[in-house]
Design a protein around this nucleic acid. Structure first.
Lengths: 130, 130
DNA sequence: TGTTGACTTGGACCTTGGTCCAGGTGCGAA
DNA sequence: TTCGCACCTGGACCAAGGTCCAAGTCAACA
């Protein structure tokens, strides 16, 4: 079983990509654009991600997947890099985003009702035409 | 008061755009791409939207705003045009979409909890550093 | 010791969803 | 009847977010 070893330290880009569900090219793209910080490199110059780096990717993906634009995620990453201890700005950014996500969930829920109404309409028409 | 008149029949593209919150260019773009059906034209060749046409736009915007790709909305529009009475396919399409929206609301709600967790973490760190 | 296979880089290309612009037309007010 | 304005068309342009490709490097294995 290779599992125990795979839990530990330093994976290559392909393995990380697979683990987080991204294309390796997407990870490189994010790095070029500052969305992700540059990872360590092994002796041969290849990218090497420890578990902390992988965890950061996973957190940032939660932000992306709740609609935060890459440019905004990049700000977050830069805050971490510039001042790893200074948590205040990051906290503000997250709270902002949290509010937006909550709002979007509310508006989607409303739209869901509109769609349901339309479905009900159509169902009635379909039943009438029987 | 112009209000009573504005409620009635046949608005031009700018007025409709304003009413539904779109750029007139966006409405033309949607029409070119089949997202919206071609509207009536007045004597001078200008687009003219009656209340039914405006209502259709509003419904389609609910689909768009819950993440349905324009290509999918276009299918819906074509179903209406091809067979105005045949409601079954439209119903299936809407139910599909409804399920996707419901799922998305669930996953976003989960991500919201992850973000909240991160906020709590940061808050604890900020409090410790005081 | 040479071939494989995974990696490296930079840049070209792609899709989605618009937005903007130039050049032309037609209607109503002055 | 001429001005001005809203509209028309077709096509260029834009931004975000990737994806793909060519050419080169390196480590390991036969």
């Amino acid at each position: 079983m290779t599992n125990a070893d795979e839990q530990d330290q330093a994976a290559g880009i392909s393995e990380v990509a697979e683990r987080v569900g991204l294309n390796p090219d997407t990870i490189r793209y994010y790095e070029r654009h500052g969305v992700l910080p540059p990872p360590h490199r092994d002796a041969g110059g290849r990218r090497s991600y420890d578990s902390g780096a992988v965890h950061l990717i996973e957190v940032l993906l939660h932000l992306r997947d709740t609609g935060m634009p890459l440019a905004r995620i990049t700000e977050f990453t830069h805050l971490v890099a510039r001042d790893p201890a200074g948590v205040d700005e990051r906290l503000a950014l997250l709270k902002d985003h949290r509010a937006e996500v909550a709002k979007r969930i509310r508006t989607w829920t409303k739209s869901l009702h509109v769609i349901d109404q339309k479905i009900t309409d159509y169902q009635a028409r379909a039943d009438n035409d029987e």
